[in-house]
């Protein structure tokens, strides 16, 4: 099924929650509302002529002012693909989870939470996955400043840089 038809079908079902379609890029994407991701995902997976049963990838990214989540979907049975995108503000980064639709999203969402601080509403077990539980901040944000030390282990080389600066002056 082509991106246009999928977009049409989603719009008929969800109305304004399905915001726009961009099919001029290499891989067409559909933009959706962050608080409707769960319902839309359910629809995409269960509808007879869509059957997106395979979540290839779920990525979080920092768009500057906002945070984004990108879903790459594939249908094993019908062999078609679609990309979904959603955007949330950094102040209130709430996206509804899809971990109950595709179980593989569980860890991917934890990763996006860990590295970008995106809050997945209704996620069954939202905690850090790659970094230690008591780490500060979310490293993949563009404005991330690492902490000085972690449990007495130096993390940054700031002190060295300061020393170098002092020597140069």
């Amino acid at each position: 099924m082509e991106a246009k038809e999928i977009f049409k079908k989603l719009q008929d079902q969800f109305g304004e929650a399905v915001q726009e379609l961009n099919d001029e890029v290499m891989q067409p994407y559909i933009k959706i509302a962050p608080d409707k991701t769960n319902e839309i995902a359910q629809f995409l997976r269960d509808e007879e002529d869509l059957q997106f049963d395979y979540l290839m990838c779920l990525s979080g990214l920092d768009l500057g002012e906002n945070l984004g989540v990108v879903y790459h979907l594939y249908s094993m049975k019908l062999k078609h693909k679609i990309v979904l995108k959603t955007e949330v503000s950094k102040e209130k980064p709430d996206v509804h989870t899809v971990a109950n639709i595709w179980r593989t999203a569980d860890w991917h969402e934890r990763e996006a939470y860990d590295l970008l601080g995106i809050n997945f509403v209704n996620h069954p077990d939202l905690r850090r996955i790659l970094l230690p539980d008591d780490w500060e901040g979310h490293p993949l944000r563009k404005d991330y400043k690492p902490q000085k030390s972690w449990h007495g282990i130096p993390v940054t080389l700031d002190s060295e840089e300061e020393e170098n600066d002092a020597v140069e002056q």
């Binding site: 890029v25 290839m56 990838c57 990214l61 790459h72």
Partner: peptide, 19 residues
């Protein structure tokens, strides 16, 4: 632009999402 590209490695689908 951006792309999601996947290849078959010995362990399975390795995908790169590049922006």
């Amino acid at each position: 632009g951006e792309i999601y590209f996947r290849t078959e490695t010995p362990r399975g689908e390795l995908g790169y999402y590049i922006v």
